[in-house]
Design a protein around this nucleic acid. Structure first.
Lengths: 110, 110
DNA sequence: AGCATATGTGACTTGCAGGTCACGTGTCAA
DNA sequence: TTGACACGTGACCTGCAAGTCACATATGCT
């Protein structure tokens, strides 16, 4: 199917932009910020920032909650953890198994 | 500066394409493949596959070695580990500190 | 009600990445 | 040396994402 993107593709594409990574950094520093507040930290119009936040939200990296006329943005690390578990851990199997061995060794010594 | 991309930006952008992620999967399954061999696994021309491999190589995710008229491709997980350490670990600080404690404990025992 | 504030929508440029092709270079084998 | 094979380069087309703007909606305050 054309235009069919799965979830991890959305996450990777969302992480591919430096502005969006910066937005995640901002939200990691302090959660629950409004669009206007986040926009003031970027050298960009409100509309640009809004587009980026929409991409992050579609990827599940940011969740939002309305509070009156404000929209509060919260960081959701779960998709990143999923990527880690599914992708990056593949390259750490040796290290992980090595750590497991160390742990076993340690427990034997005890 | 315009056009100035740092290393992690290259890595994230390289990972943003599903074809390139698939190439990394292929190389993870078996290292040291040639361009032609990798191209045969993609529904794409040799030139398209070559471009993707060049992007992966520029990001440091793939390293190459010439052998006669063939170019062998190898997976390099280091950039992914660096991203993990610098980005994703932020959300896993507890686990990391637990590992560090384990390591310290082991070293003290030795 | 009237006004300022905070966010939302659609259309519109513009730059860049993905993909293909014609053509060129180096290497092995008979 | 001739031909087949493996890889490389530059130009080109095309689609999409980034960013902006005019305009619209919803909420809070007095």
């Amino acid at each position: 199917m054309l235009g069919c993107v799965d979830d991890d593709d959305r996450v990777f594409k969302a992480l591919a932009d430096s502005t969006r990574r910066f937005l995640l950094d901002l939200l990691f520093g302090r959660d629950g910020r409004t669009l206007t507040e986040l926009e003031s930290e970027l050298e960009m119009t409100r509309f640009g920032a809004m587009k980026h936040l929409r991409v992050l939200e579609a990827a599940g990296l940011v969740v939002t909650r309305r509070s009156g006329r404000e929209k509060l943005h919260f960081l959701n690390p779960v998709p990143i953890l999923l990527i880690h578990d599914r992708w990056i851990d593949k390259y750490k199997e040796r290290q992980v198994s090595a750590l497991a061995e160390l742990k076993t060794l340690l427990e034997e010594k005890t």
